[in-house]
Amino acid sequence: MSVLEMKNIHKSFGSLEVLKGIDLTVEKGEVVAVIGPSGGGKSTLLRCATTLETIDKGEIIIGGDILVTTKDDKAVYCDKKMLQEVRSKFGLVFQGFNLFPHFSVRRNITEALIHVHKKSKEDADQICDQLLTKMGMLDKADSYPCNLSGGQQQRVGIARALATNPDIIFFDEPTSALDPELTAGILKVIRDLAEEKMTMVIVTHEMSFARDVADRIIFMDGGVIVEQGHAKDIINNPKSERTKSFLAGY
């Protein structure tokens, strides 16, 4: 069963066409890494899938819910209620963490559970404790983001995205704001999630990580998917010249 279906996605910013008909399907339990040069459309693709950008044309289905379809060559989005439903199906981990600085770690994780998903405070706290234990951060539950290292902040970011038990998690360059040591810690967390068969789409510049953890790698450039395939094949034996020259830089 596919958790994410994106068909023929078109997106322009003014006259600049950023996505030129992308197709991407992600199966349950699959880990897909999206690589490619900056400006190639990776982040935009992720932002379209996570409702932060609207597409001009195409179709997106997440967890069986239709976010957007196309009628008469124009994207038609679902209503507000459905939009909320779709948003509960995925989690997003940001490059810059985007934690809420005025909330404690606990509240960062439980706020949406309580006020969006209408869970009781006890249930929310229990979910929070489980996630923080998993992240090795239970002792930081009452800390504020400003008192945490970047790596710890990103763990909270991941815990926050996991809290609502989504069908799929998107990562937008989750380690780009971290030094190599902290990066390793975050990559381990993602690796563990992959072993638990969490469905994930990861935009990343960590090639060896993508090779080791992803089932499939997608190489994007110029608003199109240039090449995709089994992770090891793409990294070790890229077919297209563009992919080869990109990977040669690593």
């Binding site: 996570t50 409702t51 932060l52 909320q84 948003r87 509960s88 995925f90 989690g91 997003l92 940001f94 985007n98 934690l99 809420f100 706020e111 949406a112 006020h115 969006v116 998903h117 926050r160 609502t164």
Partner: peptide, 8 residues
Amino acid sequence: EAATVLGF
């Protein structure tokens, strides 16, 4: 953006 994707 964080608030939006969390469903607020």
